[in-house]
Design a protein around this nucleic acid. Structure first.
Lengths: 325, 325
DNA sequence: CTGAAAGCGCTAACAA
DNA sequence: TTGTTAGCGCTTTCAG
């Protein structure tokens, strides 16, 4: 096998417990001894076995991160930041993908539960009840979902949605569509609620939709038929798919219809027309979630969002409305 | 603490070893006993402690996946497929990001080494020598890098580059640029080599460049000054950055210059003009790498690539060459 | 400050 | 087919 604490003990002429202390409580060991042990460890290229440590201590120094869909451009920056935060504190990060499936989500939580100190659950599709139940078995931090009593990190999507709608109103739009996200999505619900409360705006809700380009394409005909001049989409991918679908129907963006996305993902940023979108602090969320987990803190954090105006929005056509379908 | 094998043994009236067998070698235990044990386990919600198991067996059922940059759209599909493959075989996947830094890459390999059965190392920036040395400490599979004697999964970028260049030649281009990738990149070297061997083509190499949108933007002036009518970029991000940079300089794509990317990432697919690009089977690579690792197989796998022609390429202007800077 | 010893949860000979 | 036993590598009381 590989080099263990015992080899180091032998090489440095001390007992294993002294070697252990050298690593876990250096201040409890004589400076000279410590130097000797460290030298031996270095020389033998010793690296502690975390499984053994965790067996004894009950802590694993691992964190699980579960997302709805790794391929959705919203998540990679979040994962990247989470991984960096974990690594800074000597934690390792397991990553998994539920494919938007609540059952798989639960299975993954359970599968991880014995091997991690906590789980960051992003955009969960499980019911509140199921999540509350699971939280008794393993500690976790929810991202993009707010449940009283659980540690959560959400972004202020309501405010983002308001800013987006006000932008449309400011441009002169009066009748707009909300192309909603998937059924189990908390953010989609929040956006919907926020939008419904905006005065002077006639809003039609289209959805639920898959949070993907395909979801946007599929929603395009309904949007075209809705007689709206502006759209707020569940995320950038949906917005992009929608623009594509609209184009096929002969509806131009932003000429005929203005479209706003959500996320400010790289894909949206590089799209043409450049997407007007609600920027979501995904990296901050990833970092915070991990930090909260490691510090075992309970908190309900709300991160700010802001509107980024680019090219996919414009005033409505003077004629008012476009010539759909 | 939580429920252990002992609790299950007690609840089902058998010895712990029988419980252990029920899970690790079910065929060695009486059907009736098995049912009883399973029932007790189910009822107590028992879940084996993998750390303990791995301490005994020396196997962890974990795999590490290290990529150069999680935020690069090339990687998420690869990670997603790797995770799915791992999960199918009851493995969990650690994910980490080197930020293109060879030192961090080595540290991560070492940090993972005691906690995984193997590592998938994607687009490594370490030297061949360093990688060979590391491979003595932990088994791994290299993706996007070919080294004799190590298990590798590469994509046939040389062939992809040839197809791309032939496409340009077919359109009438005679003088093209290769906007290369980062210095330590094996694929960039392969592409360069392949391109230099294509007859009837005058190629200027620009680079090394950062494999990002910024890298592409930074390369734009050099491309504009090179007097070329076609470009093969290191990846889609670079291609997109390049298109953006060129646009600022008043050079149109594909009107003045044709641009081809590499990867067929979602970002390139959704970009306008729709990117002509060399499709890389990233998902296949992720899946294969994990499977090879789990099966402890040594192999040098080459996956096919193919050109996807879209809208960022066109015949050169009849005048021949454009009017750059 | 250091050593001795027990044990984390599990598996794998070996015995019965 | 099942029980007994030893021990994986490490931490952590408790003595010394």
């Amino acid at each position: 096998m590989s080099v263990t604490i015992r080899d180091v003990a032998q090489a440095s002429g001390v007992h294993v417990s002294t070697v252990s202390r050298t690593f876990s409580a250096p201040h409890l060991v004589n400076a000279e001894t410590r130097t000797r042990v460290l030298a031996a460890a270095e020389q033998l290229d010793y690296r502690p076995n975390r499984a053994a440590r965790s067996l004894k201590t009950g802590r694993t120094n691992n964190i699980g991160l579960i997302v709805a869909d790794l391929a959705n451009p919203f998540f990679p920056p979040l994962i990247k930041a989470a991984q960096a935060a974990a690594r800074r504190q000597d934690y390792h990060l397991f990553v998994a993908d539920t494919g938007e499936d609540p059952v798989e989500e639960e299975n993954l939580v359970l599968a991880f539960s014995k091997q991690v100190d906590g789980i960051v659950l992003c955009s969960p599709r499980l019911s509140n009840k199921a999540l509350e139940k699971l939280s008794e078995q393993v500690s976790f931090v929810l991202v993009n979902r707010r449940i009283r009593g659980l540690t959560t990190v959400v972004m202020d999507v309501a405010n983002g949605a308001r800013a987006a709608m006000e932008h449309l109103v400011g441009l002169g739009h009066r009748r707009v569509a909300l192309v909603a996200g998937p059924a189990g999505s908390w953010t989609s619900g929040e956006i919907r609620k926020a939008v419904s409360e905006i005065p002077g705006l006639d809003t039609v809700v289209i959805g639920p939709n898959s949070p993907t380009e395909e979801g946007g394409i599929a929603a395009a005909p309904k949007v075209a038929e809705a007689g709206v001049t502006g759209v707020l989409a569940y995320n950038d991918l949906v917005a992009i798919g929608l623009i594509e679908g609209l184009e096929v129907l002969g509806v131009e963006v932003p000429g005929d219809v203005s479209v706003i996305g959500f996320d400010d993902s790289i894909t949206g940023r590089l799209h043409r027309p450049k997407l007007t979108t609600v920027a979501m602090p995904a990296s901050d969320a990833g970092r915070m979630a991990v930090d909260l987990l490691i510090q075992s803190m309970s908190a309900a954090t709300v991160l700010e969002t802001h509107l980024v105006v680019r090219e996919s929005t414009a005033p409505p056509k003077p004629s008012g409305g476009h010539d759909a379908a």
